[in-house]
């Protein structure tokens, strides 16, 4: 029960933080952390299939793609600066 409440609190906190932060990189990292907590929640709900998919696709691959996008944006910004 305590674990579940902690998980819910962590989920809400990472969700709000990843949306609210002005730093894109920080937002993406928090999104990945959110995905990992989400996977734990699915495990607690006895939905191991969804937990696996969430950890691998939601947190892993989507996170890598988003980080790629942030890096691309940064490179673009640096090349346009004088």
């Amino acid at each position: 029960m305590t674990l579940d409440l902690l998980l819910v609190a962590a989920l809400l906190w990472t969700a709000v933080q990843s949306l609210a932060t002005p730093n894109l990189f920080r937002g993406v990292v928090l999104f990945i952390v959110f995905g990992l907590f989400m996977a734990l929640v699915w495990v607690r709900l006895h939905a191991a299939d969804i937990a696996l998919a969430e950890a691998a696709i939601g947190a892993g691959l989507t996170g890598a793609l988003l980080l790629n996008g942030v890096g691309h944006l940064r490179a673009k910004q640096q090349s346009t600066l004088p």
Binding site: L52, A56, I57, L61
Partner: peptide, 29 residues
């Protein structure tokens, strides 16, 4: 293993494929 395990427990094509893709991403990084 995940592909094979999908028949009788948690696992399956999507999870196995995501893991393969993750291996590709790791090699690239």
């Amino acid at each position: 293993y995940l592909l094979w395990a999908g028949a009788h427990r948690a696992g399956g094509a999507f999870q196995a494929a995501a893991l393969l893709a993750g291996a590709g991403v790791l090699l690239n990084l």
